[in-house]
Nucleic acid binder design. Structure first.
Length: 272
DNA sequence: CTGGGGAAGGGGCCC
DNA sequence: TGGGCCCCTTCCCCA
């Protein structure tokens, strides 16, 4: 469902990650009712407003305090598999992903326990391998790389070729990764209803659900349904007596990491 | 102020 | 290699 990834916000008031202009014109999923007037031909010399740095954490610069996983969350099994999402692996195709999910398992507590931060962009990763993969995109380490991090990178990383995005400063170590990234600039999939543009067709399909009201992800414990599986997953936490995200200082638990971050930022345990 | 829902941003995995 | 889909995370808004 649409994480609606890389949406070109024609009308959005949210923070724009990319400017509307300078987008390469592509033809897929462009409805006739929305000529790509706002998707001018890309000028290779233009620079999109692409923030090379990582996400901005609202809880100041300091990373969130260690997240203590709440040990055995007392969720019934049915809650952990509310939609029996693990039943039919790749049987879905596009629209049927309401029941075609490969897994509905909530992130395991130990996933939450370890947070690895990229020294280059401050992004956080829940596993060292994920961080290592991510760091491939930074394979040309800037001088600011903390020395304790740089040596930890695989040796072959420094030898990999770099594929530079011509629209932003990002670099990738594979052409495929670069191409996928470039779609975030070109945004070839345009919503016929509102004109929002997406990088991938399935993102557009999910976005269309926001117009149609389709909510294929139903909660088994209440009448609510969601258009996004992740949102259902978050919702399921509200049915749990013990939340997954626990404050390391006061042991208070939260249903979402963002709430825990808010809690930490509010001063419970940040300075103490 | 807090908790929750909606939607979005990004990377990874599988086929 | 690319498409399709996943997960995690974050932000914004509202009750």
């Amino acid at each position: 469902m649409p994480r609606s990834f890389l949406v070109k916000k024609y009308f959005s008031t949210k923070k724009p990650h990319y400017r509307e202009s300078q987008l390469e014109s592509q033809t897929a999923f462009v409805p006739e009712s929305f000529p790509r007037a706002e998707l001018p031909t890309l000028d290779t010399g233009s620079a999109l407003t692409c923030h090379p740095t990582g996400p901005v954490y609202t809880s100041a610069d300091t990373p969130p305090p260690p997240l203590s996983p709440v040990a055995p969350v007392s969720l019934p099994l049915s809650l952990l598999n509310p939609l029996d999402l693990s039943s039919s692996p790749s049987s879905s195709s596009g629209e049927e992903d309401e029941d075609g999910g490969r897994t509905s398992d909530p992130p395991s507590p130990d996933v939450i326990q370890h947070v690895y931060h990229c020294p280059h962009c401050k992004k956080s990763f829940t596993s060292l391998s994920a961080l290592s993969h991510h760091q491939l995109s930074h394979h040309q380490l800037p001088p600011c790389v903390p020395p304790q991090h740089a040596p930890s990178l695989p040796a072959e990383i420094s030898a990999r070729p770099a594929f530079h995005c011509k629209h932003c400063p990002k670099e990738y170590t594979s052409l495929g990764a670069l191409k996928m990234h470039i779609r975030s600039h070109t945004l070839p999939c345009v919503c016929p209803t509102c004109g929002k543009a997406f990088s991938r067709p399935w993102l557009l399909r999910g976005h269309i659900r926001t117009h149609t009201g389709e909510r294929p992800f139903a909660c088994q414990h209440c009448n609510r349904a969601f258009a996004d599986r992740s949102n259902l997953r978050a919702h399921l936490q509200t049915h749990s007596e013990v939340k997954k995200y626990q404050c390391g200082s006061c042991s208070r638990t939260f249903s979402r990491m963002s709430l825990l971050h808010k809690h930490s930022a509010s001063g419970c345990c940040s300075a103490s």
